[in-house]
Design a protein around this nucleic acid. Structure first.
Lengths: 156, 156
DNA sequence: AGTTTGCATTAATATAGATTAAGAAATGAA
DNA sequence: TTCATTTCTTAATCTATATTAATGCAAACT
C-alpha cells in the first residue's frame, strides 16, 4: 500500500492491464470509464474524496476500466489481495462484477449486441424464460428484440 | 433462516416492503424486477439454482425490487443481519446498492430524469465536472443533455 | 496579447428503438 | 378437444436521442 499524487488528466489504469489495484481517493477526483468499439468514452464512476474505485475483475484477469484524474488528486493504492483476507466476501465481489458488466452493457451496447452478450453469458437461462423476459432484462421491448433477431438472421 | 417452496408466479417480495430478506435459490428460477412510472416491468436479475437475489437496500428501508418465481422453486430465506457479522462488508453492500440504482436508472429513466436523479444524488460532483462528463455518465450525448436541460427550463 | 484547444449551445437531419395494432403460434385450462 | 390466454412476429408510424456541423466562449499555452 502506497500513497501517490496524480496530476489532472493522468491515467493510472488502462483497460487490459493485469494486476489492477484498488484506489482510495484521499483528495481530488478520479473517474473510471470504458471506451467502446467506436472509440466513445462511457464514464462508469466518479470517485471524489473518501470514495474507492476499482475494476471488479480479479487481479489475474485483464481489467475493463480506465481510471484517470479529473482533478489533481492524492490516492492510496491498495493491492487486491487485502480483500481475500475476509472469507465469503468473494460472493459480493462477484455480484459487483456482474453489475459492472451490466452497467457497461446498458451504456454502450446496441440491442442486438446486448442480446448476443446475454446468449454468451447465460445460455441456460435463455432456454428457460420467454423472449419477453429477456427483452425486459436487456432494457428493450419484445417487439424490438424480435426485430433485431430477425435482421441478424437475414444478414447471414 | 428457513426453507420455502414458491409456486410459479408467486411474489415473495414487493417494492416498498420493509424487512426485506436475502433469497438463496436451491432449485427453480427467481427474478427480481422494478415497475416504472408507466407501469412497465424491468427485470433486474434472473436467479437460477445456487444464485442469490436480494434488494441491496438496508433492512430498515423500503426496498425497490419485486421478487417472484418464474418456475416452481425452493428457496432459502436469510435475514439481512447475517451480513453484519463481518464488518467492512458494509462498503461492498454500498457499492452494490449504488450499482443497483444505476442499472434501474439506465433501464427505466429518460434523459432528463437521469439528469435530475444525478442532481439530487451528487450535487457536489455536478459543480466539479463538465457537462460532457455528466452526459457520459448518464449514457447520453452532451448535445442531448444541453437540449433536455433547455426544454426543462422553458417548461417552467 | 494572441493563438490554439476544448466546451457548451443550437439546429438540421438521421436512426434505433418505442408504440400501436393485428394476426399466427404456442401454451394452458376446463 | 375446445376455448382462452399468453407469446411471438410483422408492419406502420412515432419519438427520443444520436449524429453532424457550425458558432461563440472560455481556458490553457506560447
Amino acid at each position: 500500500m502506497k500513497k501517490i499524487k496524480v496530476k489532472k488528466g493522468e491515467i493510472i489504469q488502462r483497460s487490459g492491464d493485469l494486476n489492477s489495484c484498488i484506489y482510495r481517493v484521499v483528495s481530488g477526483l478520479l473517474r473510471s470509464y470504458t471506451i467502446d468499439e467506436k472509440g466513445k468514452e462511457h464514464i462508469f464512476m466518479f470517485a471524489p474524496e473518501n470514495w474507492t474505485v476499482a475494476d471488479s475483475q480479479s487481479k489475474e484477469k485483464p481489467c475493463d476500466l480506465f481510471i484517470d484524474a479529473l482533478e489533481e488528486s492524492v490516492v492510496l493504492v491498495l493491492n487486491k489481495d487485502i480483500i481475500k483476507e475476509s472469507q465469503n466476501i468473494g460472493s459480493f465481489i462477484k455480484r459487483i462484477a456482474v453489475l459492472q458488466n451490466r452497467v457497461i452493457m446498458l451504456m454502450s451496447f446496441s440491442a442486438i449486441r446486448r442480446y448476443e452478450h446475454f446468449e454468451e453469458t447465460y445460455p441456460e437461462i435463455l432456454q428457460r424464460v420467454t423472449q419477453k423476459m429477456i427483452a425486459s432484462y436487456l432494457g428493450i421491448t419484445p417487439e424490438a428484440l424480435s426485430k433485431v433477431k430477425n435482421e441478424r438472421k437475414k444478414q447471414k
